[in-house]
Design a binder for these strands. Structure first.
Length: 407
RNA sequence: CGGAGAGUAGUUCAGAUGGCUAGAACGUACGCUUUGGGAGCGUAAGGUCGCAGGUUCGAGUCCUGUCUCUCCGACCA
């Protein structure tokens, strides 16, 4: 991609009314545009990042045996009346058709996936079953905030599992937990598994995957010596108290929730009369679990965790392109050759071919935040300057070496 | 939803006490020049001052209402 052709360019001045780092940098670098509070357009650059995150999540969910489907975002009122979510869930967006028929916009999909599963589950032999989707979610938040961290429309992976018994659910939960930790690690995030309340629909404890950041909205107690971690909302302790697992003093910190896991029990199975026959031919309700990852929120949290005063520093696996290519000082012909050669080698390149000053191109590359910067300058002949975004030093290498390193 | 701040050019902002043709920088277009950290000179385009009322000879400025954005809080199956 040539930067001169990119539809949404970097801007020299950051936007006002953007106090949060992810908001400021994502807008300034041209990844998102705000339509209204909590609702954003993802530009071509931003969509590439979103897709990269999505694909990592997809890989791991598929590896768990999850089957990806795509459910509607527009739901009939009837499904939400069955669980009483229509009256109880205050973040549920409700709308009305011309004829007065009422609908909800999906804020989660238990009400859709559970009746769907009735077609699939009849016997214990049909269990376990795991379905997931990656889709926009809608929540009528009283206050959207923090850039793309808390939105009214956000991109989310939600997975639902159905089990014969509690033991099977817990076994699967363990696998999901491991997969989640792998996902966040791949995204460059250190997530802590945090005990939290299950919300109003379940009395059981849920687990939240928390990343420490001041931009988050939760306060969590965590232990440096072991993996104990609990949300302040259900904790009866204070900072410095002994960790109940290992005795070390607990720390209190701000964190953002990037994923969660709920033990739904038989709540939805019973509401929708989803049953299966066990080995003795008895009718039973499956145990359900649901597992979310906020894809768009992850993108924001990555920016919160990976940036400096000059801009974003994407982990390689989520960066929209592998390298920034900059042509300086009349080196355009060779830079064009390098651009074509890298593209033919299957390497994703963002080529700054604009007629701009050197400083302007460097600033744009730093702001956009691709992991590698290549500079072509006539003073270096055919040698190419290779510099990592997160390091100050650069080195001169030839084109073959560049290709070798990027493949 | 409670509290606070803010809406003026594409962007970031300036426009005390009301005053006559509303400015700057950056960006944009054109010309010349320039290429290792957001270059320079010149010319030009670009505004119903968020919206609706009101006070006044006169409103970007004062008053009322309203919409929107940001922050704090509450809320967040």
């Amino acid at each position: 991609m040539k930067l001169s052709k990119l539809a949404f360019q970097v801007t020299k001045t950051p936007p006002t009314n953007a106090d949060t780092i992810n908001h400021k940098l994502l807008v300034q670098a041209g990844y998102v545009r705000q339509l209204m509070a909590g609702v954003y357009t993802y530009t071509n650059l931003g969509l590439k990042v979103l897709r990269n995150i999505e694909n990592i999540v997809r890989e791991e969910m598929d590896a768990l045996g999850g089957q990806e489907i795509l459910m509607p975002a527009l739901h009939p009122k009837a499904n939400w009346l069955i669980t009483d979510g229509w009256n109880k869930i205050d973040v549920l967006f409700k709308l009305q058709s011309r004829t007065g028929r009422e609908y909800a916009l999906g804020q989660s999909h238990e009400e859709i996936v559970t009746p769907l599963a009735k077609e699939l589950i009849h016997s214990y032999k049909d269990l376990p079953l795991t379905l997931y989707q990656i889709q926009w979610k809608y929540r009528d938040e009283l206050r959207a905030k923090s850039g793309i961290l808390r939105c009214r429309e956000f991109f989310m992976k939600d997975m639902y599992s159905f089990h014969e018994n509690q033991a099977d659910f817990e076994k699967f939960y363990g696998e999901v937990k491991a997969a989640y930790l792998r996902i966040f690690q791949r995204l460059g995030l250190t997530a802590k598994v945090t005990e939290a309340s299950g919300g109003s629909f379940t009395q059981k404890i849920s687990y939240e995957f928390m990343v420490l950041t001041e931009a988050g909205e939760d306060n969590i107690f965590y232990c440096d010596r072991c993996d104990y971690c609990i949300n302040q909302e259900i904790a009866t302790i204070t900072e410095g108290d002994a960790c109940p697992k290992c005795g070390a003093p607990l720390k209190l910190a701000r964190a953002a929730e990037v994923g969660n896991v709920f033990d739904l029990g038989q709540k939805f199975s019973k509401d929708f009369d989803l049953t299966f026959a066990n080995k003795n031919g008895e009718k039973k309700y499956p145990i359900m679990g649901c597992y979310g990852i906020g894809i768009s929120r992850c993108m924001g949290v990555i920016v919160e965790k990976h940036h400096d005063e000059k801009g974003i520093i994407w982990p390689a696996c989520v960066a929209p392109f592998a390298v920034s290519l900059i042509a300086l000082n009349g080196a355009e012909p060779y830079a064009n050759h390098v651009y074509e050669t890298l593209q033919q080698a299957g390497i994703k390149v963002l080529f700054d071919d604009r007629f701009q000053s050197a400083g302007s191109k460097f600033a744009a590359a730093d702001l956009i935040g691709l992991p590698i910067r290549l500079v072509i300058s006539s003073r270096n002949g055919k040698q190419i300057e290779w510099k990592k975004r997160d390091q100050a030093e650069s080195e001169l290498i030839d084109l073959e070496t560049v290709i070798k390193r990027l493949q």
